[in-house]
Design a protein around this nucleic acid. Sequence first.
DNA 1: CCAACTATTCAGTGTTACTATGTACTAGTA
DNA 2: TACTAGTACATAGTAACACTGAATAGTTGG
Lengths: 109, 109
Amino acid sequence: MGKQLTEMLKGTLEGIVLAILAGKAAYGYEITAGLRENGFTDIAEGTVYALLIRIEHRGLVDVEKVPSEKGPPRKVYSLNTAGREYLEEFWKTWSFLSEQLERLREGDE
Amino acid sequence: MGKQLTEMLKGTLEGIVLAILAGKAAYGYEITAGLRENGFTDIAEGTVYALLIRIEHRGLVDVEKVPSEKGPPRKVYSLNTAGREYLEEFWKTWSFLSEQLERLREGDE
DNA sequence: CCAACTATTCAGTGTTACTATGTACTAGTA
DNA sequence: TACTAGTACATAGTAACACTGAATAGTTGG
């Protein structure tokens, strides 16, 4: 993978993180670790944190500071109503793109 | 759609154009028009031309100048061996991302 | 005390799509 | 002639986003 994936993640990583948060509230370190276990081995720490701050500023998530047993306090993010609506939009956009690509892939064989 | 799609196209538009060229040789104006007819209504002219120049410099396509009946000469692009290999890689990367997202979508229901 | 793990932040970089504009050729038309 | 519209390509500047690399801070174990 590598560079192609990096470029492809632009726009989709945001949806991925929102989808994770739709499942359950989570904090940055946890999300990053989860992604790494699921094939996104090269995801950079900083990337996820920057993304979380971005979606927080856009009002898509609520934040709560929770003390950790080990290490500094965690910032736990949870999807709010606006976030849920935005995620809906994301899935529509993704479906559209996905269909176009599937069509192209089949057309070439 | 709009902004979400714009970000998602980063990384995928390149693959889309390569896949089109895998079907048959084409020139910029033609590709842009084709994309617009297939749902990508907001694709900017300049975007496709810039992309074509980029993949040409990377050696993924061969170029031939062909006179047009109406208007300036066309730059007809065709996928070469390197381009075909790169497209293979693209499909692998896309498949990976696609599977991850499909899993996430199902997991949330 | 120092290393390792947990947890977050941020300045700087590269890539990419978009905006806006300009160039150039042809055909039709007033 | 002059002007519009359609065809065809190019490019400078901007915005958004993921990555690099480094810093900070708390806890635990050797």
